[in-house]
Amino acid sequence: MNTPLLSAKDLTVQFRTPKGPITAVNGIDLTLERGEVLGIIGESGSGKSVTMRALLRILPEAKTEIAGDLKLDGKDVLSLKGHDLAAYRGGDVSMVFQEPATALDPVFTIGTQISETVRRHRKVSRKDAQARALEMLELVRIPSPASRLGNYPHEMSGGMRQRAMIALALAAGPKLLLADEPTTALDATVQIQVILLLRELQREMGMATIFVTHDVGVAAEISDRIAVMYAGRIVETGTAAEVLKNPKHPYTQGLLSSTVQGAVPGTPIKAIPGMPPDLAQMPPGCAFAPRCPLATSACQAAVPDLRAQGGERRVACVRLEEIA
């Protein structure tokens, strides 16, 4: 069997703060095959974005400690330094940010921003890089791409900016694309267009993709597999169909029934009571136990392991057998 494109084992991210370390990502395992799409869902603060930034190694080094084992295509990502690291970022793996309005440099044209990325990763002339930038804008279906090359970000609409951001992320032909809530900042109608575009490009270009979202509908639309994160840990993972049709972890069940799609018409949407735990003061056992309607004393004893449930499915709940 082939080695997976991405494999993360026991990946842990800690932030050093004046009040002591905060564990934002707590020993997660991830594997991704070539061309596969993984959706990571969870609430704000569950560690989704931090995981993505750790994968790309763009967390501020002075304040962060990344531990565990992280390999992309055989490359040991956590030991990369200097030019190898710069070549990895944007070359092997690239990212579409949540807010294109702030992630694009406001005082450079879109064309310059794409072509400088191309020139950073490929030995091509300025002219060829411009040609590649034009090709990328065509690829993301921006109307009149040639004139858009000379536009500044503020001269574009939100949806157009996000298309430009996608063009930029794909310009150097990465093996893995990280999309960090790429549609959250967009209007609902534009969201759908951008999701469809990403799915199409992903199939055309065949790169593996990790898609982070708190929108279950979006995750269902685009993912092959889904991982549900809560308080820095993965609590449930499996194929998209399994997880969304038959959620086993009480948190996943809560997350699904708290969405508009999951609600039964005529009944109120069921919100999960309480708040996610403070990462600086994690409860001793299952982090979801304080909010879980099914929690018992066993839940507080130890952090539950992710247990295999056949196939791709793994769930971290001690009461799994009783409640299923």
């Binding site: 763009i58 940010f97 702030t102 406001p106």
Partner: peptide, 21 residues
């Protein structure tokens, strides 16, 4: 501290480039 600097690092830009931005 702005996001575009993180995005520049994310696309592999090195310090001299980021300085120019």
């Amino acid at each position: 501290g702005q996001e575009f600097v993180t995005a520049l690092r994310a696309k592999g830009m090195t310090s001299p480039h980021i300085f120019a931005h």
